[in-house]
Write a protein that binds this DNA or RNA. Sequence first.
DNA 1: GGCTTAGTTGTCAAATTTGAGTACTCGTGT
DNA 2: ACACGAGTACTCAAATTTGACAACTAAGCC
Lengths: 202, 202
Amino acid sequence: MNPTRLFVLGALARHGAMYGHQIRRDARVDRAELWSEVRPGSLYGALHRMEAEGLIEPVRTEQDGQLPARTVYAITEEGRRELRTLRTEAFGEVGLRPDPVDLALAMSDELDEDTLRGFIEDRRRMLAAQAAQFDHLGERAWPDQTVADDLIVEHARLRIQAELAWHDLLLDQIEKLRTVSAHRHGGDTQPGRGRVVPEGGR
Amino acid sequence: MNPTRLFVLGALARHGAMYGHQIRRDARVDRAELWSEVRPGSLYGALHRMEAEGLIEPVRTEQDGQLPARTVYAITEEGRRELRTLRTEAFGEVGLRPDPVDLALAMSDELDEDTLRGFIEDRRRMLAAQAAQFDHLGERAWPDQTVADDLIVEHARLRIQAELAWHDLLLDQIEKLRTVSAHRHGGDTQPGRGRVVPEGGR
DNA sequence: GGCTTAGTTGTCAAATTTGAGTACTCGTGT
DNA sequence: ACACGAGTACTCAAATTTGACAACTAAGCC
């Protein structure tokens, strides 16, 4: 689907002609970084390829004082068609994108329970901090905030709540394992002691 | 962080030496595709690069009947170190990964409300289907299911619930806009009629 | 002035991903 | 006996991303 292209075409369609660095800045200012990531390499690469494909075209070059000159791009009619296509594709991508933490957790046999709990507690703290940021972002957080922006913020809020709930559940489970292994602290070797995942293989 | 490397190293550490296609198959069988995506190109590319770096090493080549020969790789001691590093990095990645739908929504001015509602309703249907799959996956869904696997499934469940809730909220908002514009169907031009996003720019 | 820090506007090689394709073999129906 | 869909095991070019760096300017500070 290509999020970078969608982001660039969308920015040009919404704000009119822009140059590369301006797109980066707006992504920071409008908090668009919440729902996209624009790194310089990807951004300029996409601009050059899309120019070659005729989706955008350079309209002029400006220079501000003695700062480096910059190339201003505008979206073409073909670019607008591509924008609609990419948007439809994006709406069609429904599945949950894989979260690295699931992968990490699956690879965490041979990891002692204290270290694991440490990781999860750290994550929970960071999530709580992010949640606070979003709540603080309740009303009129930045200029030109549209209804769509509100909905996107609400999306982030709901997603973070779900993450927090899951982390609490994780910590519960780890605690449960701990107390079980503490109670029968005798010379047993049977069930996963201090391990969330039994070390048995295939 | 590189999920592909983490996945491959984790598989080799858990199941012992494996060849490329076997890793793909296990990813399907163990439902690991729920929390990772292993495409052939990425997989074999990673295998070759990691061999060159000494994280894994070919231990033998097998041949099953007249099927193509295959190279079996084992993880090295250095590979195990790298595995621990990657896992720690994965635990450290806390933010919400951007969801393309947010991008699509942000680019959806000039999109009439009926089309938009159609997109969201389609998404909601697909999400509900996925949610049903996960609920159906409640107990003992596949062999060798560990506690960690259970937690990962629970993670997916919670995330999908959050998505469903947000989609319902979206549909509510769209419906609200519709009834408002239907009531004052006179000659008004003021507020966003049939548009979720007012078309005003910067 | 002279220094440091931050911002501007990108470029570039290397790593990685994508998506299709190759060249087989196996099982199953007809 | 032969086609045909599915599986095996992997390759490859092209697209894309990553992350560091280049080469400057601007703005404060003492």
